[in-house]
Design a protein around this nucleic acid. Structure first.
Lengths: 109, 109
DNA sequence: AAAGTGTATGTCAATATTGACATACTTGCA
DNA sequence: TGCAAGTATGTCAATATTGACATACACTTT
């Protein structure tokens, strides 16, 4: 029984990609991006609503003003974790977060 | 996930910080954890529902079986980004994701 | 004009997260 | 029993993300 590369790839969960995978991946990537954008929008909205400056929000979540600015600017260095943290720290309710998802559905439908 | 937040709070002396800040931070951290748990549960549910093995799901999202296992085990090395990617790749609809948030609200509310 | 307040952008060392791999455990089936 | 498929766990080099800092920009008030 030879343990060639293909078999190894299969047993470890790998397969050669094709065009379908590529398109599928793009779609999923698009959904994630759309979701992030919705949440980012929710962060800014929530922060403004509660009259918090970026510095205020940064202090609340032990981050920095520049990070908050990057969040709201959609900087690629910002993770979904940080966006959601900001959303929570800004005082957004779980309902607000759900609303962001709903908005996302409309966009990404 | 960062688990050194408490440690940093302690070592920095935090004369500025007060009990209110401390509790607030814990609460926000708890909300994030609860949210992650809900989404993790949704990942596994969605994967099983569509009869996908961890290897299948890993292929779909260009990850590895061990990563999927870590996601579902709630391993601290797994980001919210990865959880949501897995959720999307598993075929979960936006409605499914919203449902996960609703479940989270019941827990964290 | 100068000073104050809030936001944007670039940089970077420290830290967190990643896919990949090896390997062990579990379950069911021949 | 042995085998195969699925899952769990530990490790690690490569990469991504972080808070902090400096600094520039926009706007308002003095």
């Amino acid at each position: 029984m030879k343990t060639d590369k293909l078999e190894r790839l299969q047993t470890t969960g790998w397969k050669v990609g094709n065009a379908e995978d590529f398109l599928q991946l793009n779609d999923e990537e698009a959904r994630l991006v759309a979701l992030k954008l919705s949440l980012i929008s929710a962060v800014k909205k929530s922060r403004i609503k509660r009259k918090l400056s970026q510095i205020d929000l940064a202090q609340r979540m032990k981050s920095s003003q520049s990070r908050i600015a990057k969040i709201e600017a959609g900087d690629p260095s910002v993770s979904l974790d940080l966006i959601v943290r900001a959303l929570i720290a800004s005082g957004a309710t779980t309902r607000d977060i759900q609303a962001a998802f709903t908005a996302n559905e409309r966009v990404a439908g």
